[in-house]
């Protein structure tokens, strides 16, 4: 299962412990986590399921490429970091 870490800045607004979930793409992994944490999901993705403009996701150290549909592939051993971009403050 891929492991997902959330920026500590999110914790001021919503619970977001490090989580593990299955999925072939980063979108599938996040969808499994957000299915039970809907409020957290809306802090990371907009209502169309796209990564918010000033959010950033790293997959094994690499920047996510598909910000709209989150189709980037992930492995069972992948580490996914949900972070803030430096823009948007």
């Amino acid at each position: 299962m891929a492991k997902v870490f959330f920026t500590s800045n999110l914790r001021r607004h919503v619970d977001c412990a490090t989580a593990e979930a299955e999925g072939a793409t980063v979108g599938e992994v996040l969808a499994r986590i957000f299915a039970t944490q809907e409020r957290l999901g809306f802090y990371v993705l907009d209502e169309q399921g796209r990564l918010r403009k000033h959010m950033m996701v790293l997959i094994d150290g690499g920047r996510v490429k598909d910000r709209d549909k989150l189709t980037d592939p992930v492995a069972a051993s992948s580490e996914i970091y949900v972070m803030q971009a430096l823009s948007g403050g």
């Binding site: 800045n9 000033h54 971009a85 948007g88």
Partner: peptide
């Protein structure tokens, strides 16, 4: 309007505390 985390709406009932509620979504 959080710069990173989007638009949010909160409500405080009379004598209560702030709680996040639903946001208008398209």
């Amino acid at each position: 309007n959080h710069g990173h985390f989007g638009i949010k709406l909160h409500r405080r009932d009379r004598g209560g505390k702030w709680q996040e509620i639903a946001c208008p979504k398209y």
